[in-house]
Amino acid sequence: MWPFIARSLEISTILLLAAIGELLDERSGVLNVGIEGIMLLGAAAGFIVGDAVGGFVGLLVGAAVGGLIGFLHGVFSISLKVDQVVSGMGIWLFAMGFVTYWADRYSGPLDTKIPKIYDLSPMFPIALLTVFLIWFVLAKTHIGLKIRAVGENPFAAEVSGVDFIKIRYLCVVVGGALGGLAGASLIISYLGAWSHLPTKGLGWVALALVMFSLWRPLILLGGSLLFGFLWQLAISPETIYAGIPAPLPVLRMIPFIMTILFLVVISTETFRKKWALAKPESLGIPFFKE
């Protein structure tokens, strides 16, 4: 039972890191639908560097690459005023192409592994700490207030002396780095091997998690734990109960079906009002400073 829980907590870790990064992005008003792509690039960089140098360096490089791609999304969507969804999609499609070319030739197991404590990845406490830190920054600090102000109304924030461009860049870079770290820990800590496009939709689940967290880090934590469990259950149900009658493909569909169901539930009338209130007002809208 414990190995199963440790594995599912590891999936939760990956979802949590990617999603908290996206949450930070969105709180500052930048939607990044390219997390799946950022995770892929972070995973590839983490894999290649991790294989050559070592697991922890791989994680750091994965995060750095993620930050770089986050910065690129910032250049496109903040400075060049490209539609945020178009930019995010572009990053995702580019990542699919680049990663296939770059990492597929090294497909296979990773030589180094990072040490685990009782089967549990050290990334799990790190992710918990990150969520707490981001919650603290957003809710309790001055810079958090600025971030939220920029996300609600960049024009008003600008008038009251907040450099919204700087704030948004900060958020997309940190958010991207967390996405890259999520991808790198998927490869280095969870999978331990590279195969063609290994993220398998985790980035999109993370994006959905942000949506139904109502942009609150603590709800996000709960959602990540639940979906980590579901994802792992779909992969190795036999560790919980050997006699599950459903065939493997049906189990594999469960996390995706649950994601749709969750999205539908939070879109119903009752939740919609709360949702509309919680949503950063300027999310997805490019802002022209004249």
Partner: peptide
């Protein structure tokens, strides 16, 4: 392998 997909990614 994969150069074609890279090319498409670059176009994107």
């Amino acid at each position: 392998f994969g150069l074609d997909i890279l090319f498409l990614g670059i176009i994107t």
